[in-house]
Design a protein around this nucleic acid. Structure first.
Ligand code: FES
Ligand code: FES
Lengths: 143, 143
DNA sequence: CTAATTTAGGATAAAAGAGTCCGATTATCA
DNA sequence: TGATAATCGGACTCTTTTATCCTAAATTAG
């Protein structure tokens, strides 16, 4: 979302992002790296390096992000943990759960980063996580 | 579900349950114990001991079980992990997620163990978990 | 070419979770 | 009253997840 709200003609270094959002450097680095490997972001090393969007923010959906970070196995898995989920051998919740699961899937596919960024424009700093970790500005040490 | 399908005039020992369902003894024991502490089941030590339902199977809902096993924090938590979830300070997904979250909540509250047991009556043995663990019948050792 | 900057990614550490084991406790029966 | 059959709950182990750190590689400025 932060990257989506930035002008895209140059790269954004991790340090800028983490200081603005007040989140830990290495934490953000791993996430950005992961999204870049999936092609959602592009990265560039060196002097003017950093991260930028790999595709238009209207094209990046929550589904893509969940897929890159947590995986989307849940769309196929039995909610009770049975080895297979199928209509042939349904568990006690199969029909009920399938309905909710489909709704969530559709929601993930529908929500784009562009849309979300628009909605959070005014409160992006609220992204600071639940626990108050140290962020770059006051970080104890880094060369 | 297994207990709901049994006549309730005497207790069911863990061993009987785990052999019928082909699941590991200690695994089931911990779960049963946990449900008993919450009052969903009753337990009795000694000779004719075992577990039984603590309340009518029509009164035990999925919500009660999730509450006892995994917790139901998710009904209050921000899906993006912000420290608080509220309409005053909503995240980019607040409205969208609230809707799904409510549906899932209602589903959990609606589904009773009685209903589920009825539906799985014929395939309860399918409860054997994803990975094929050893179960009591062939377990390597226990006094 | 060299120094500075910045990401890449493997290694390590820390934390959480799942599953197992075992001694203690409780109840029943002969 | 002693032997036996059970659960109870803490300790322990194993695996997975999360977070951090560190060195290498890439890029650019001078
Ligand atoms: S079989 Fe359980 S959700 Fe489909
Ligand atoms: S504020 Fe994020 S779900 Fe309510």
């Amino acid at each position: 979302m932060y990257l989506a709200l930035k002008r895209s003609d140059r790269m954004t270094p991790i340090k800028e992002l983490t200081q603005s959002l007040r989140i830990p450097f290495h934490f953000a680095a791993k996430i950005l790296q992961r999204l870049a490997r999936k092609g959602l972001l592009v990265s560039l090393k060196g002097r003017a390096g950093g991260f930028g969007l790999g595709v238009a923010p209207t094209e990046i959906t929550l589904f893509h992000i969940v897929e890159a970070i947590d995986g989307v196995e849940f769309t196929r898995r039995c909610v009770l943990g049975l080895p297979a989920c199928s209509v042939e051998n349904p568990c006690a919740l199969h029909e009920t759960w399938r309905e909710e699961r489909d709704r969530i899937y559709k929601m993930l596919v529908r929500k784009s980063v562009a849309e979300m960024a628009r909605e959070m424009k005014n409160s992006l700093h609220g992204l600071a996580a639940t626990k108050d970790k140290d962020f770059d500005g006051y970080q104890t040490n880094h060369s």
